[in-house]
């Protein structure tokens, strides 16, 4: 019998490349403080439906890479192709889940979730029902008319994820979305991400500085190192889906943790 993971890999092999970087680099020009090389020589192909995580120490350019992918900033060198076209700015194909939930306190959860629809001037009526559905899938149906402060940190971040999903993007970018949450909430959120990915088969790029999270939430880990920020190695994670938290305690998972850690240590970032 064919295992699920091999199926996934086979599906990947035929999936088209959605995001491709070639010699991608980013230098921040900060005027009198000189230039900061945040990212250099980045090459990768991300295929449709892949679950990729970026892991690395703080300051290694993870957020920079994500912001480049989202079009919020433009690269200073190299190329970044989204569906074969150079990324020139934000667009409807990509949605971002930020580190903080960034819910507007004067809007209810439903109104917050519909904010991108308002910005893009899509018909609100058509999206209201979809918003309820999505809120329901993350257990927030009863909170649609609550204000953000009435929700816990985890629930706020779920609302942030729904706000990204309502745009039905091809690619979902998540920048350390659970960094501020407690360990237990974080594990539950990880399972939510896997569930969303398995259901929607969207391409997800997940940024984290937790090695465990990076392996659990991906079929490929981009290991990044700093000074200057670059991708040190790309590790294929051949673990079957659906995954449960028990997977983390298995020896094979431990092997992956060892490999990622070794990769970070070689570069002197985790001494």
């Amino acid at each position: 019998m064919l295992s699920l993971s091999t199926q996934a890999i086979q599906a990947e092999a035929v999936s088209p490349v959605v995001l491709a970087a070639c010699g991608l680099g980013m230098t921040y020009r900060t005027g009198k403080f000189g230039d900061v090389v945040a990212l250099t020589g980045v090459n990768f192909d991300i295929r449709h439906g892949e679950l990729v995580s970026l892991v690395g120490p703080s300051g290694c350019g993870k957020s920079t890479l994500l912001r480049l992918m989202s079009g919020l900033i433009t690269s200073s060198e190299g190329s970044l192709l989204l569906g074969g076209e150079q990324v020139r700015g934000p667009g409807p194909k990509v949605a971002v889940v930020f580190q903080a939930p960034i819910l507007l306190p004067w809007r209810t959860i439903l109104q917050n979730v519909l904010l991108p629809v308002e910005f893009r001037e899509w018909p609100l009526q058509d999206y209201r029902e979809r918003a309820f559905e999505l809120l329901d899938t993350v257990g927030l149906a009863d909170f649609a008319n609550s204000y953000p402060h009435e929700l816990s940190g985890g629930m706020q971040q779920r609302a942030g994820i729904v706000r990204a999903l309502i745009q039905d993007p091809q690619i979902l970018l998540m920048d350390e979305p659970f960094g501020a949450l407690d360990a237990m909430t974080r594990e539950r959120m990880n399972l939510d991400v896997l569930r969303i990915w398995e259901k929607s088969r969207k391409t997800i790029v997940f940024v984290t500085h937790s090695i465990t999270e990076s392996i659990f939430l991906s079929n490929r880990v981009f290991v990044m190192t700093s000074r200057p920020g670059k991708i040190a190695d790309i590790i294929d994670v051949d673990l079957p889906f659906p995954r449960s938290l028990d997977l983390i305690n298995t020896p094979v998972f431990g092997d992956y943790v060892g490999r990622v850690r070794a990769c970070l240590q070689v570069s002197g970032d985790l001494s």
Binding site: L72, V94, A95, V96, F98, I102, L104, L115, P116, F119
Partner: peptide
């Protein structure tokens, strides 16, 4: 952050 959020939604 709020401006980034808005910009990411065009």
């Amino acid at each position: 952050d709020r401006i980034d959020l808005a910009r990411s939604c065009n």
